[in-house]
Computed example of a mutant assay.
Amino acid sequence: MKTVDQEPDPRFTLANERTYLTWLSTSLALSAGGVAMAAVSADVFVPWMRTLLAVVLVALSALSAAMAYPRWRRVQRALRRSAPLPPPAIAPVLGYGVATVAVLALILILLSR
């Protein structure tokens, strides 16, 4: 069965674009968090843990940025075909990744007191 592409309501296209830009903003925030973690004083966290947390944040940043455009394209295609929207595959990875970093940082903060 061949699907016919049709121009979606501009509000949906613009909402999809805002979501795309939000994924990029999230990527920038994660990258900034990684750089900030790398710059934390050596007496706050042990150096290897500080480096690990920084690397995880920057890796999540790269993943978020890399997945933003393919996600936008899949959603746009679904809108044009009046098909169900695809689930955001990257959301669980980012959610669990950031939660892991936050819990590890919290533990390190509590242990350094």
Rank of each mutant, 00 (worst) to 15 (best):
Q6M: 08
Q6I: 09
Q6N: 05
E7L: 10
E7K: 07
E7F: 06
P8Y: 03
R11F: 12
R11D: 12
R11K: 07
T13M: 05
L14E: 13
L14S: 11
A15K: 05
A15W: 06
E17F: 07
E17W: 05
E17Y: 06
R18G: 04
T19L: 10
T19S: 11
Y20D: 01
L21H: 08
L21K: 04
T22P: 00
T22Q: 12
W23P: 00
W23I: 03
W23C: 11
W23H: 13
S25K: 09
S25F: 09
S25L: 11
T26C: 12
T26W: 00
T26L: 13
S27L: 02
S27R: 02
L28M: 08
L28D: 11
L28N: 07
A29R: 07
A29I: 06
A29G: 07
L30M: 10
L30N: 02
L30A: 02
S31L: 13
S31E: 06
S31F: 14
A32F: 07
A32C: 10
A32S: 13
G33P: 01
G33Y: 01
G33S: 11
G34H: 01
G34P: 01
A36Q: 05
A36I: 05
A36C: 09
A36K: 03
A36V: 09
M37F: 05
M37Q: 09
A38Y: 06
A38S: 13
A38P: 00
A39L: 13
V40N: 00
V40K: 04
V40H: 03
S41E: 11
S41H: 12
A42Y: 07
D43E: 13
D43T: 13
V44L: 15
V44E: 05
V44N: 03
F45Q: 00
V46L: 07
V46D: 12
P47K: 04
P47R: 05
M49H: 04
R50I: 12
T51E: 10
T51M: 07
L52Y: 05
L52A: 15
L52W: 06
L52T: 15
L53Y: 01
L53E: 02
L53R: 00
A54Y: 01
A54G: 15
A54E: 01
V55A: 15
V56G: 03
V56L: 13
V56T: 14
L57C: 13
L57H: 03
V58E: 00
V58Y: 04
A59I: 07
L60P: 02
L60M: 04
S61T: 10
S61A: 15
A62C: 11
A62P: 00
A62E: 01
L63E: 13
L63Y: 10
S64L: 03
S64C: 15
A65T: 04
A66H: 11
M67P: 00
M67V: 14
M67D: 15
A68Q: 02
A68I: 02
A68T: 01
Y69R: 15
P70C: 15
P70Q: 13
P70A: 15
P70D: 06
P70K: 15
R71V: 03
R71K: 15
R71W: 12
